[in-house]
Design a protein around this nucleic acid. Structure first.
Lengths: 183, 183
DNA sequence: ATAAAAATAGACCGATTAGTCTAGTGATTC
DNA sequence: GAATCACTAGACTAATCGGTCTATTTTTAT
């Protein structure tokens, strides 16, 4: 059974992924979880910002688990392709509503709240370091730089595929993954 | 001299670029432009959505002009590098507040308003077609697919550079542009 | 069993939201 | 010069925003 705090975090993570920072209201979270305001401000004394910070953390780590599972035990090319499939599935299963779990917050965080921007940065950093380690273990040269580039490509393709309601941008990545790896 | 309507569009374009759809309030726009509410609803009978739709259009076209100027008369590799420099300058000159002018709206539009999503899609489409034509005129093979990929890369690097407050992701693109072009 | 702590419950607050509506101003046209 | 139009002006509304506060219930520890 999930604790009230965890339910608040998970529901918030789902909402900020789709509607961003300002688009996600406290009352909507409370309504969806079915708890009163007192509970939220008991578990999150810092209010909305504290809640969103933890939701970013949760959403980012949950996504990393999905990526890690896709990569595990596979050679680089195959693993990265499976990672792209995770993103494609996220879009298709949600009718293009669920793209990257933290982008919608990350792109406004710089103009909103430094703590939240840092939370986003750390999630991105964790993903990238994870991928760099994976590539290194498979003997890929310049693993760190290539991990940076692969994430940039995937992130952009995620955004464009969502905006166009067409996964072709993500599918294209499968063509360019080997080109990046062999560069 | 700028008309009231144009001032409203330009100020809104600046605000949605930094704070997104829900983060941009009507009253903030009015305050910054210095006009009363009646003027806004006279020029934009559809209210906030109409205003934001036109702000997306304006911001997207303004950015395309900057990209076009960077590309003009240059060979592919040099032109694309200059295009990346435009993005780098946007970030540095705004202390990382101004990234892609429509991404902050695009990533939530699917869950908000279909008309606005379409406005974003059309801007992206215009940019991409423009770049594909540019590449084709320079004899680049598979110009359309490569334009798609280059935009995905740039878009992702824009997001990551902003989130990390570090232009290295955009600078990396200059390494991978020739690799994509020659693939 | 009782005291203390954790959590829930929700009324309430001031501020702000997008939007409406009525007046009034200014310029244009007949 | 009268009528019509485009536009400005801002008061006002209902709803919602994030947040505070006091009670009450539930759980834990002794």
């Amino acid at each position: 059974m999930l604790s009230t705090k965890d339910k608040l975090i998970q529901v918030t993570a789902g909402l900020i992924r789709r509607k961003g920072y300002s688009g996600t209201g406290i009352s909507e979270v409370l309504k969806e979880v079915g708890v009163p305001k007192g509970s939220l401000y008991h578990h999150f004394p810092d209010g909305k910002n504290g809640l969103i910070r933890q939701a970013i953390q949760y959403g980012g780590e949950a996504q990393m688990l999905k990526y890690g599972e896709a990569l595990r035990g596979k050679p680089a090319l195959e693993g990265l392709s499976a990672m792209v499939d995770v993103m494609i599935n996220d879009l298709l299963e949600s009718d293009y509503k669920d793209a990257c779990p933290i982008t919608a917050v990350a792109v406004v965080a710089t103009s909103m709240d430094e703590d939240i921007r840092l939370a986003c940065e750390n999630i991105f950093k964790g993903w990238q370091e994870n991928l760099a380690g994976y590539l290194e273990r498979r003997g890929v040269s310049k693993a760190n730089q290539k991990a940076e580039q692969l994430y940039a490509m995937f992130e952009g393709a995620f955004v464009l595929s969502q905006a166009h309601k067409d996964v072709k941008y993500l599918k294209n990545q499968k063509i360019y993954i080997p080109i990046i790896l062999n560069s």
